[in-house]
């Protein structure tokens, strides 16, 4: 009669079963397709690393990868520089002023990316808002051709990525205990020193998480570079879409995707590490 094995019910075992369905779904429709992409990069059109030789053999594809990383880097740095003071201000104000400021961030985050990119096209085009303003203000004589161009891509991408930098930063800054700053000031630090020695180091996890997030998302960004960048500022996702959807070169598209996947995954791992050390969950993005 003695129950020899732990045959009984456990509170946790019940919950474990719940994982089966979502994991099957994610496995079948996420992990499996991605595995196939990697596989295909070595087998299409023939077995071998020919696709990778094309990617890394110099020429246009390597340049696209370089532009992708460079753009992601520039966008990340710009976002960090812009978002830090903004997050600092938002984290210090209270009540309805804070709600108002957050409303701007959230409305921006929620607006369709396609629509926002469209709006930037309107702004940057030859007869667009910016050129009309520049001509009217006598800064330039003739409208400048911003499209397609690097400036437009950067402005558009920073605009879309900024909330993803702001939110993790804010989450971290809000948890910083203000009495620590007061303590530093009591001990003789002036506000600048207190900021530099206490607040800034404590806010670094937010900066780290936001930067990883923005860099990661920028690497795979499609809409803005496709609309505003043109062939001279082509990024990886645009090239992959073109190769697969229009030129039907799936082998090359798969190889490019695998490289992009590797890049993004490594940043993702850094991001997870940062989030873990910051003790928080995932950034509550869009």
């Amino acid at each position: 009669m003695a129950s020899d094995k732990s045959t009984g019910w456990t509170a946790t075992a019940f919950y474990r079963w719940l994982l089966v369905a979502p994991l099957a779904f994610v496995g079948l429709f996420f992990l499996w397709p991605i595995l196939n992409v990697i596989l295909r990069s070595f087998t299409d059109p023939s077995l071998g690393v020919a696709n990778y030789e094309r990617v890394f053999g110099g020429g246009p594809y390597l340049k696209v990868l370089w532009i992708t990383v460079e753009t992601a880097g520039i966008v990340t740095i710009l976002c960090a520089l812009i978002a830090y003071p903004v997050a600092y201000v938002i984290s210090r104000v209270r009540g309805s002023m804070m709600s108002l400021m957050m409303a701007f961030v959230v409305v921006s985050l929620w607006t369709s990316v396609v629509i926002r990119s469209y709006a930037w096209m309107v702004v940057f085009q030859r007869k667009g808002v910016l050129n009309q303003f520049l001509v009217a203000a006598d800064i330039v004589e003739r409208p400048i051709s911003f499209l397609p161009g690097t400036l437009a891509v950067n402005v558009g991408m920073v605009h879309i990525m900024l909330p993803f930098m702001l939110l993790p930063m804010l989450a971290t800054m809000r948890t910083i205990d203000r009495t620590l700053i007061s303590a530093a000031e009591v001990m003789g630090a002036n506000p600048f020193v207190a900021f530099r020695k206490v607040f800034f180091p404590l806010s670094l996890p937010g900066l780290g998480a936001g930067s990883a997030l923005v860099f990661m998302m920028s690497l795979g960004f499609f809409i803005t570079p496709a609309l505003l960048g043109g062939p001279r500022h082509m990024m990886a996702a645009v090239l992959i879409e073109q190769q697969a959807n229009r030129l039907l070169d799936w082998g090359l598209a798969s190889a490019l995707s695998t490289v992009l996947l590797l890049l993004t995954t490594s940043i993702y791992l850094v991001y997870l590490r940062v989030m873990k050390s910051a003790g928080g969950g995932f950034a509550h993005g869009r």
Binding site: V26, F29, F30, W32, P33, I34, N36, V37, R40, L213, M216, M217, L219, G220, F221, F222, A236, A237, I240, E241, A244, W250, A253, S254, S257, L260, L261, T264, T265, Y268, Y271, G285
Partner: peptide, 17 residues
């Protein structure tokens, strides 16, 4: 991960499937 990784990779993976 699917939220973080580029959608284009998922797209060209799901297409043949």
């Amino acid at each position: 991960a699917p939220m973080m990784l580029p959608h284009v990779i998922l797209a060209i993976g799901l297409y043949p499937l």
